[in-house]
Design a protein around this nucleic acid. Sequence first.
DNA 1: GTTCATATCGAACCGATGTTCGCAGGAAAG
DNA 2: CTTTCCTGCGAACATCGGTTCGATATGAAC
Lengths: 209, 209
Amino acid sequence: MATLRPRQQEMLRFIEHFMDERGFPPTVRDIQYGCDISSTSVVDYNLRALTRAGLLKRSREVSRGIELVGRRPRTTRVPLLGSIAAGQPLPVFPADPATLGDEDHVEMDAELAKNKDRLYALQVKGDSMIDALIRDGDVVILQAQDQAETGEMVAAWLIDTEETTLKRFYAEGPRVRLQPENTAMGPIYADARNVQIKGRVIGVLRRYE
Amino acid sequence: MATLRPRQQEMLRFIEHFMDERGFPPTVRDIQYGCDISSTSVVDYNLRALTRAGLLKRSREVSRGIELVGRRPRTTRVPLLGSIAAGQPLPVFPADPATLGDEDHVEMDAELAKNKDRLYALQVKGDSMIDALIRDGDVVILQAQDQAETGEMVAAWLIDTEETTLKRFYAEGPRVRLQPENTAMGPIYADARNVQIKGRVIGVLRRYE
DNA sequence: GTTCATATCGAACCGATGTTCGCAGGAAAG
DNA sequence: CTTTCCTGCGAACATCGGTTCGATATGAAC
């Protein structure tokens, strides 16, 4: 395979960036303006070259008919808002991400964050979810949402005791069961009106030293 | 929030399916034909409703300017080709996925499989990767590839001893280091020509009883 | 009955967009 | 030198595709 031309590399980077930002592929003219190319035919020419190189697939005669193949997963930044554990208060939610420094973010797989919004991260204190392979010190990635389905792992706010806890969520009629993943611990039962779902766990990060 | 109309649910399912298949969002007319709707204005009408409901974002005046938000992760089927461990043979690769029954597949997050091809799964024997949270009995998802970057977790085939092993890959000049994630075990050193990469680990599954 | 909101339909408008064609400069091969 | 291939350029074409508008139907509220 011939080596990739600089212009083709630039186009590839532009397409990746565009899809991250917008969620759908760019048009030929998007690429043209984004890469300072003087003609759409040049874009088409190099798009063909990239297709031959196997770096993307095209659906001809179709607007935005570009699909990237074999992408390495990239990462995205998620604000780290605090920590969470059974029996300990969670900082006011949502904390303002704008006030956070660089150190208060975590990197995560961009594929997981794709098409998701309002993500945040919390550091886990305690081993109540050890059997779900979530340990003390791990960072969980959550999607902010106020509803949950049965069996999902969620951050739940207990209104009366002002506690936040990381558990699996089970709706059981008028009450909810918050189930730890630790055989040494029993579930928490609470009135449904006393439980506010703060987010659903969509990922876990652990850093090795 | 008002409950979703059947037509809107159908449109949502169509959009999801379309994006899985094609890698980019459908046009208004794609949705029209795909859902047997008589007019594009009806599609537009219901698309606005779905936008109000927060289920998708639209870039107005832009073809295919549809982005799904908050999608529940769906799953995809990956063939389970066998097992892998240090010191034990791997079945001939690739086994023919067509000959496998339903029991020989695993379900995995479709987001992880996005834009990836030639995925397969192997069941792990032994605890050589215990510190990477991969235990005996776990299933690892691999992307078939014959090259790896330093630090990636790979399935490596040692040609002379006819063994396959799951390790982290480190290129060290003329030789390669295959590093287990278990403090009780030491690395394997091998001549680079004697090592053939079979795939890169992109996911791990564990089933709880 | 009237009124209003919801949902659908058909048609048209017009900008967006993929494709194609002729042409040109430059490098490599003859 | 000429020829050939690669790459870039500009313009034009035909269709694609998002949007809008007026009309219709249904049902709930009054």
